[in-house]
């Protein structure tokens, strides 16, 4: 492979170049966040990691506008072994078409989870794949990243904060932390861009 070919690869970015090579992106629904994301939204055909130590600060709320938009298309939103019941009335209230929602689980063993995750990302039948998984290593993530590329799927991986100490081939990594009643979003990795300043988003339920 020539150097030029390597540089054209969307997975490669050159230091000092602010603008990433064009990859498809899906607007997050949060304009401030989109402004910081390469392409202006969640990377499509790639893995995004959302890391946080605290539950109930809006990790799901953060991706919901994108999920609602994706549910208008003909592919599945796959939820793989979610930690609790995704509550249908709330999803519908946020504009998610429930007919596109696929709840997969419970899953018996870790190898099962990896198989399902890889299948879902790769099959081309899912517009987004959501998974909650702490113990996955670089090689595993790399395979998932490739699967997401093959299936043109948004892979959303929710992991504990400790995972930010490990390197990851994911295209985008965010850290979420509570900030008063709002939520601080810190981008710790993005394609074609240096680490950006933290962003404070209001991820509360509307009307509170």
């Amino acid at each position: 492979m020539s150097l030029e070919a390597v540089l054209k690869d969307p997975r490669v970015w050159r230091f000092g170049r602010e603008v990433a090579p064009a990859t498809e992106a899906l607007p997050s629904g949060f304009a401030d966040l989109d402004a910081l994301l390469p392409g202006g939204g969640w990377p499509v055909g790639a893995l995004t990691e959302i890391l946080s130590e605290v539950e109930g600060i809006g990790a799901l709320r953060l991706v919901l506008p994108a999920l609602a938009r994706l549910s208008q298309a003909e592919r599945w939103l796959a939820w793989i072994a979610p930690p609790h019941l995704p509550y249908a009335p709330a999803l519908a209230a946020h504009g998610v078409d429930l007919a596109r929602v696929l709840i997969i689980g419970p899953l018996a063993r870790p190898p099962e989870r990896f198989w399902v995750l890889e299948q879902s990302l790769r099959a081309g039948a899912c517009s987004a794949v959501l998974a909650w998984w702490s113990r996955v290593d670089w090689r595993g993530l790399r395979r998932l990243q490739l699967a997401a590329e093959a299936g043109q799927s948004c892979g959303l991986l929710f992991r504990p904060l400790a995972a930010c100490r490990e390197t990851s081939p994911a295209a985008l990594r965010l850290v979420l932390e509570p900030s008063g009643l709002r939520t601080a979003v810190r981008i710790i990795k993005r394609r074609g861009g240096a680490i950006a300043r933290p962003l404070i988003l209001d991820l509360r339920v509307p009307g509170l």
């Binding site: 799901l60 979610p82 609790h84 509550y87 249908a88 519908a92 429930l98 339920v205």
Partner: peptide, 28 residues
Amino acid sequence: PEAAWRFCTPGEASSSLARQRRPLWLLA
């Protein structure tokens, strides 16, 4: 709240009965 939803065959369409101010996660 616990009876306001159910599992179904994938792809089954729901009528819209959405309520505001519900959590995204429900405990079993």
